[in-house]
Each structure stands twice: as C-alpha cells, then as structure tokens.
Design a protein around this nucleic acid. Structure first.
Lengths: 169, 169
DNA sequence: TCGCCTGCTGCAATCGGTTTGCAGCCTGAT
DNA sequence: ATCAGGCTGCAAACCGATTGCAGCAGGCGA
C-alpha cells in the first residue's frame, strides 16, 4: 500500500511529466512553446494543488488570455503527458504538474466542506487491479481513486452537514 | 479485498436502500410516493447498470414527464438513500437501486471505448482507509473508486485509442 | 524576399448536464 | 370548504467545456 500503482506499470500510459519534458514534447511534435503555455506551466508549478481551467485563467490575469484558449492548451498539454484529474466532486477538471523528475503518483483526500485537498500516497494495490482485469477479460485497466471526508479545521468549525448528500459513490 | 467497505461501516452514511425502504422514507418525511417516483424506481429496478437522468427520462417516455422534474426527483430520492454515482467518465450522474435487501456494495469497471459497465466486488480496504483518515485527521472518510479499461469485445474490434487521453486520473 | 502552410489565439456561439423561478395543480390537514 | 405545502411542467439560466471562424505569427521552400 504505497505508491506502487498500476497506472504507472502499464505500458500504454504516459508517465506524468515534469515541465521540461512537456516542453520538449511540444517541440518534438512541431507544436510551439508559446508564452501562454509557458505561463500556464509556470502557474501550475507554483501551485501545490491541482487547478481548474478557470483558476489557471484567473491566475494568468483574465485580460491576457482567452478561457477557450486555456481549454485548448490544457488539452494539448494533457496529450503531452500533463495529468488531468476529474475527481474532486465539482465536475471541473483539474490539472497537475509534477515539479520533480520522480514518478510521484498519488491520489487526493478532499474535504467535503471546504474543499481542502491533501495529497495521499495510498493507492489501490496493483496486484488486485491485475487480478481484477484478468477476471473480467479487460486490458489496460487503470483506476480512479479519491477520498472525501471532513478535514480537521471543519470538524471544529462546522456542524455536521447532511450525510445523505455526500458526494462519493 | 471484498465488499467490506468503510462507506458502510461509517455511521454518518445512509446505507444503500432497496425500493421499499426508499418509499417508506418518503412517506416518513411527508413526501409523496407519486406515480412518477414509482415509475422512476421501477425503471431503476429493471436495469442492471446505473442510469443517467436522461436515460431515466427516455425510459419513462419523454412525453410523460419533464426532465427538470426527473432531476428534482432524483435529488429527493438521493436524499432518501438512493445511490448517486459520478464516476463514469462522461460527467453525467448515474443512479442505482439495489434490488435485494443485502448490503451489496460494489464499484464499477467501465470500458473506455464502448462504456460497457461491469459490476465488481473489489473495494479499497477498510483498514487502509481508516489509517488514512487517522493519519490526516479527517473524519467521515469515504472514497470513490472506479476502474477503466478495454473490454473483451472492444479488444477484438478496435485498434488502440490514444492512451494519453485516457480518462482516469 | 515573397508567399504559403500550419499552428495559435480571441471572439462568439453552441452544447450537454444541471438548477431554478414561476405558476398551476393536487392532496392532506384544519 | 379552505388553506398550506408538496409536486409538476415550462422556460430560462447556469456552468464547464467545445467548436467554427477569422486574424495573426512564425517557419520553410521557391
């Protein structure tokens, strides 16, 4: 139960890339490392938590770029290996850039009330995932795993919210 | 690695309910078991896979009800314990009704290409989740876990799709 | 150097899932 | 019978995301 995760063992999946490899891949594919893309990556590098398109847009200064172009650039960067996450409960995609060269796979623990995000090293065990894939005849099996709960601060400050509308399935 | 899942052990979370308990709860809360709600639950009961609001709407016959009312009713039913799932990769919520009285928790394995859904019994181990919660000071921790891959049929019929846009994070 | 091709960008429109305001209806309690 | 509250249909709006279009910029060959 550590960061040994099948998502990284599978040959079909691009390994999450630090900044320099992303820009190298852009160049290798006759795409350009434009100022906006550099700025996007810089914003991601300076933030510990994954950011939404809107948050990136705001961080760049709303006047300097178009939100639609951010969406397009995030799509491009994702195809270069940037990690896109969908699993924070609000339906918005988030993007995450690793700043060191290590293959630092992780999941997240999200506070149901204040949306605080904590990085988690726990992961679904590879051997179980492989057995699962074999059992059902699937290949290229990956998973999404996110945790939700009440963070220490919200435990103190808030009465319990209605548990029936908790987001995790 | 079975269906022992912390989501059910936690006292704050409503246990997933079969049809009769949902209707009982409606009545207990001075809500009504209207014809439309009965029809919705009947549709869910007859389908093995979780359904979206639109699918339920279509199954009911588009002329007989309003989509907005379906959304409202699904919200109501969810607050009564019906299980709502967000994790099938297309951004649409899905609803699931258990037809037997057993506490039959499960997750899903979704085909990236044809969206086929397979119920699976594997779950993130409770003891790890509890340790995780304690380690970070969170309470009421639950999780979302979904698996994605290529189903046997799509392995035969389709060339590999671009792995860089695979949906799981 | 001149075009030309390709990719990038801003703008506006659009789409799909979801929510909400409003008015009318039905039902159960007083 | 009356009244309040919940339910419903309709229309509009919201939000994340995508797309068509036109203009622009940079690289490359003639």
């Amino acid at each position: 139960m550590n960061n040994a995760c099948s998502q990284h063992a599978h040959p079909h999946r691009l390994v999450q890339q630090p900044l320099t490899e992303l820009t190298d891949r852009l160049r290798a594919g006759s795409r350009k490392v434009t100022g906006q893309r550099e700025a996007i990556l810089d914003v991601l590098r300076r933030h510990a938590s994954p950011l939404t398109n809107r948050e990136i847009h705001a961080a760049l200064g709303k006047n300097d770029c178009d939100l639609a172009t951010i969406y397009r650039n995030m799509h491009t960067l994702t195809s270069m290996g940037l990690v896109k996450r969908f699993d924070f409960g609000d339906g918005a995609a988030r993007f995450e850039l690793l700043t060191d060269a290590s293959d630092h796979h992780h999941h997240h623990l999200v506070c149901n009330q204040c949306s605080a995000i904590v990085e988690i090293e726990d992961c679904f065990p590879t051997e179980y995932e492989e057995a699962l894939a074999k059992r059902h005849g699937f290949t290229a099996v990956t998973h999404r795993l996110e945790f939700f709960g009440t963070c220490p601060r919200c435990q103190k400050s808030t009465a319990a919210v209605d548990p029936t509308i908790a987001r995790p399935s």
